[in-house]
Amino acid sequence: MFTGIVEIMGTVAEYNPLDTSASGGQGVSVTIKDAAAILGDCHIGDSIACNGICLTVTEFDADSFKVGISPETIARTDVADWTPGTRVNLERAVSQEVRFGGHYVQGHVDTVATMVSVTPEGNSLVFGFQLRDAKYAKFIVEKGFVCIDGTSLTVTDVAADGTFYIAMIKHTQEVVVMPLKKVGALVNIEVDLTGKLIEKQITHALHNQFDNKNSTLNKLIDSIIDEKVRKYMSK
């Protein structure tokens, strides 16, 4: 579990799509450097969010760590765009001592979005995004949480065409990777878990109601239909 409060920015040092070593996880292997500030208490098997992707440390030294990334993760994220020199947001999994300044972030990226606009507003920047997968649009709501490249942010507006916006203050601009990206770049999106849980519960409850002929919902529907039929027949 993470908070979406980025600790530092690291740099991709190695990207090996054909690495088949045990530590590479039979898939893409990535080494990230400039990470000394978060490796003082690191252990093999620890989770570190890299641009919002929860990844497992398989090797590390004083300044860098290595992770293996599965094909499924590559398909859902911007990992395919990483090259040596790419900057990435880094956050360790939460501990008991961490203040929860962002929101509950799993590090399970749902999809990517394209950055479609960047507009200065005072000393803030307003970013606009379009989701690749429209099915996640229902979870993007004004004043709701969204995690973008591992950064906990608040949605400021959602346009009719699905474009959504966030405003980033000057301090955040200086400590996360988003301002380093240009219009057209991809970002990782994790929608708020709360919305997905609520949808799941409501869908499950409705299915149970529909499947039970004696349920309150079915009785209500039958009552409405009967009333409509009576009114029609009495004309």
Rank of each mutant, 00 (worst) to 15 (best):
G4A: 09
E7Y: 00
G10V: 02
V12Q: 07
S21R: 03
V28L: 15
S29Q: 11
V30H: 08
V30G: 04
D34V: 06
A35Y: 07
A36L: 03
A37M: 13
G40K: 01
G40R: 04
D41H: 14
V57C: 00
T58S: 15
D61V: 04
D63M: 05
V67Y: 00
S70W: 02
I74A: 11
P84T: 05
R87N: 02
V88R: 00
V88G: 02
A93T: 09
Q96S: 13
V98A: 08
R99T: 10
R99P: 12
G101M: 03
G102P: 06
V109H: 09
D110H: 03
T111F: 12
V112K: 04
T119P: 05
N123E: 08
N123C: 06
Q130Y: 09
R132E: 15
A134F: 14
F139L: 11
G144F: 03
V146I: 07
T154K: 01
T154P: 05
D161L: 04
D161N: 08
T163L: 09
M168C: 07
Q173P: 06
V175T: 15
V177P: 00
L180S: 08
K182C: 05
V187A: 02
D192T: 10
G195K: 10
K196A: 01
Q201N: 12
T203D: 14
L206E: 09
N208W: 12
Q209E: 15
D222K: 12
D226S: 14
D226C: 13
E227N: 14
R230E: 13
K231H: 15
Y232H: 09
